[in-house]
């Protein structure tokens, strides 16, 4: 799984979660939930959708590694190996 594929999936699912926002404008170190105004319920649904699309399980103790675009992409890339 390439980094590009992971990131385009992230953008696609973020757009679905927060349709009125532009996920592409996120900086790598920006907190995704704060920047796109995503609540706890939608945050969980976003991770569920990532899991379904990429087939990567994200244990609850790793949620803290998924807060920014950079850390989430790194994490998923590492887990997909």
């Amino acid at each position: 799984m390439t980094r590009e594929h992971i990131q385009s999936t992230i953008f696609e699912l973020l757009k679905k979660t927060a349709p009125e926002t532009d996920p592409h404008s996120l900086r790598p170190d920006e907190n995704i939930r704060e920047a796109l105004n995503i609540d706890s319920f939608d945050a969980l649904q976003f991770l569920v959708a990532l899991n379904e699309k990429l087939g990567i399980d994200i244990p609850e103790e790793d949620y803290s590694k998924t807060t920014t675009l950079g850390s989430l992409t790194d994490y998923l890339e590492q887990r997909s190996r």
Partner: peptide, 9 residues
Amino acid sequence: KISERLLPV
């Protein structure tokens, strides 16, 4: 699995 997890609420 992630789709069956509970939220504090």
